[in-house]
Design a protein around this nucleic acid. Structure first.
Lengths: 111, 111
DNA sequence: CGGTTAATTAGCTGATCGGTAAATTACGCG
DNA sequence: CGCGTAATTTACCGATCAGCTAATTAACCG
């Protein structure tokens, strides 16, 4: 894909397994084995997904003995949402410029 | 990446060239040559990017003589935003559960 | 019809991705 | 120390991706 942060974040989200991991971490931190449990994947595969999420800044990792608990870090989601919000007028009818214009017209014509 | 629609949309957004194309189309429809003009890429490369955006449902294409004008279709952005909004509480302080709890406490303890 | 312009398709290449199996690191404990 | 458990790293594979050049299709114009 590319090297800028936003691209890395979107690329990380473009995989159902990684989105499921995020969903799991929304319920609280978890170890790698706990995260891997629901998936029909090997541990190394999960480890790679976690690395992708970490590079995107979407998770952080602690260190407790031999466990490395993962925690959701949602800040990049804010940036991604921010980028998309620039186009919100194109899909949110309540923010459509024409819609707003028509509404202002219906409130009464200018003098 | 994967085959579900959300993955396709995120994958499409995970490229700066494609995001720039979206930004361009926010100013109105454009032909392929117009879209390609600002980039140091060949036309076939742009054509491929447009196909990716089209598969993601982010653009639609008309047909006027030999021109194929592209139009922004932002509906998938709504779905993507919707998915991210599930985790909004993790980055938006005003939506944080603990934050809300503390605020309600400060308004005065229950009887 | 032939010529021009717009855009796509075909075919190739190098890079990256997602997965596995096997080896390795790191820690806790007897 | 040696063993078990957690997790990562390494090495490798097939598939997909992003880019190019060259060839092709499609539509207009004279």
């Amino acid at each position: 894909m590319a090297t800028d942060q936003l691209s890395v974040v979107f690329a990380a989200l473009a995989d159902p397994t990684r989105r499921a991991i995020i969903a799991r971490l929304a319920d609280g931190p978890a170890t790698v084995n706990e995260i891997a449990e629901p998936f029909a994947l090997t541990l190394p595969a999960i480890s790679k997904h976690l690395k992708v999420l970490e590079r995107a800044g979407l998770i952080s990792r602690g260190r407790q003995a031999q466990w490395r608990p993962c925690t959701l870090e949602a800040e990049p989601l804010r940036e991604a949402t921010e980028w998309m919000s620039r186009y919100r007028q194109f899909w949110d009818p309540s923010l459509d410029r024409l819609d707003a214009h028509l509404k202002s017209l219906m409130k009464g014509p200018p003098p």
